[in-house]
């Protein structure tokens, strides 16, 4: 998103994650215009430092569904961020929160969809190398 010219602020509880942001960059994350704050999404101070009050879009993509759902709703209801996107692994809950106005990305649903596509293609013999099915 930074490369597209947007202002991006990243909040992570692990200070070491900063290094990951710089992989493949020619200069530092900050020199490229990024912002980085150490903290968790449940800490209001951390969200404020990260600039949530001026954000147009908020993305909750920690590795925990429950954390994502809570902080996404904080962004949505308390800070009135216009667009809130949440990663939810559990398809059933993703569907319910989607009905409640959260944009959800459900990696499980996406993976299942892709697997189905692959399997159908293999089954109909239109894709996949010869004899690959069932080999591992």
């Amino acid at each position: 998103m930074l490369a597209d010219g947007h202002a991006v602020s990243c909040l992570d509880e692990d200070a070491d994650s900063h290094a990951r942001l710089e992989l493949g960059l020619d200069s530092s994350w900050e020199d490229e215009g990024g912002q980085f704050t150490v903290g968790t999404g449940l800490e209001i101070d951390a969200l404020l430092t990260a600039g949530i009050e001026t954000a147009d879009v908020f993305v909750a993509s920690t590795d925990g569904d429950n954390t994502n759902i809570v902080i996404a709703q904080i962004a949505q209801r308390r800070f009135r961020v216009e667009t809130v996107i949440t990663r939810i692994l559990d398809p059933y809950r993703a569907e319910w929160y989607e009905q409640r106005g959260l944009h959800t990305i459900c990696p499980t649903r996406i993976a299942i969809g892709q697997l189905e596509t692959e399997l159908r293609a293999v089954a109909s013999g239109t894709a996949g190398p010869e004899g690959s099915h069932g080999s591992d």
Binding site: N66, R93, W96
Partner: peptide, 16 residues
Amino acid sequence: GDDEDNLLICQVAKDK
């Protein structure tokens, strides 16, 4: 022992 869990379980119980 997890506040997010307690919060969301109750929210779902009430609202869903």
